[in-house]
């Protein structure tokens, strides 16, 4: 029995690693550049690797570098980080519904590894997600992020210019690759993603709010709007049936 259980965990761990492969590739150029920029912003290799090790959030780590170069105070940098990363609250709440029952301690551990990318892969996966799957998915993403942050600082250079530029599409291509299969099957998914994209474009291009809030608000508005329409449609149909 124990063997069987362990076998199940390893296979879902392996599936997680496979699911995270695109993230590993996508983080490579971004982490490398982060290491390089951290060096030019005056962070030591230890500080750079420590940040990737315990923060593990690309966008806010980049922002902290530009704030450091501006000479912004520590408190403001931490506050900005909080605002940029508050969207993960929504993502964790979503994953909590989809995650298999398990001891809370395991969830508290893998919660550390929830990023835009690991969330997107886990949330678009068919069925539930197990703890083993989450650990596999996060391990490969985390390793890529931490190792290549250090490598970027060490070698102090990024990839050849054209490759660096073209690899910048990787994570967006992954998001598209995750979205399209569901998009083909469901009008609801299509409307949700279009609304999310339109709201976020209005909010960020119109410079109405910081990116962190914009993604949260666009997501919530779209998700609530579509759900309300569906709810009203059901109600109307229900009332028609009664008569």
């Amino acid at each position: 029995m124990t063997d069987l259980a362990i076998g199940k965990v390893t296979s879902s761990f392996r599936k997680g690693v496979q699911g995270g492969l695109s993230i590993g590739i996508g983080y490579f150029p971004i982490a490398l550049t982060f290491g390089l920029l951290a060096k030019t912003s005056g962070l030591s290799i230890y500080e750079t690797v420590l940040m990737s090790l315990i923060v593990f959030a690309g966008a806010s780590q980049y922002i902290s570098l530009s704030l450091i170069s501006y000479g912004t105070g520590i408190f403001e940098i931490i506050l900005t980080t909080f605002i940029v990363n508050i969207r993960h609250f929504l993502m964790s709440a979503t994953l909590n519904e989809k995650a298999e029952e398990d001891r809370i301690i395991n969830k508290i551990i893998y919660a550390f590894g929830i990023t835009d990318e690991t969330f997107s892969v886990a949330a678009t996966k068919d069925g539930t997600v197990s703890t083993g799957y989450m650990f596999g998915l996060i391990s490969i993403s985390y390793l890529s992020w931490v190792i290549f942050s250090g490598v970027g600082h060490l070698i102090g250079a990024s990839l050849p210019h054209t490759l660096q530029e073209s690899m910048g599409v990787a994570l967006y291509a992954m998001f598209i690759g995750l979205l399209v299969p569901s998009l083909k099957k469901s009008t609801k998914v299509f409307l949700l993603s279009i609304l999310g994209a339109v709201f976020n474009s209005i909010f960020t291009l119109g410079q109405m709010m910081a990116q962190g809030w914009s993604i949260v608000l666009s997501t919530l508005l779209s998700a609530i709007l579509i759900e309300s329409i569906e709810y009203i449609k059901k109600r109307v149909r229900g009332e028609v049936n009664e008569k």
């Binding site: 929504l90 569901s182 999310g196 919530l220 779209s222």
Partner: peptide
């Protein structure tokens, strides 16, 4: 609905 709106 959140995953698909977020992806967009």
């Amino acid at each position: 609905n959140v995953p698909y709106a977020t992806l967009g």
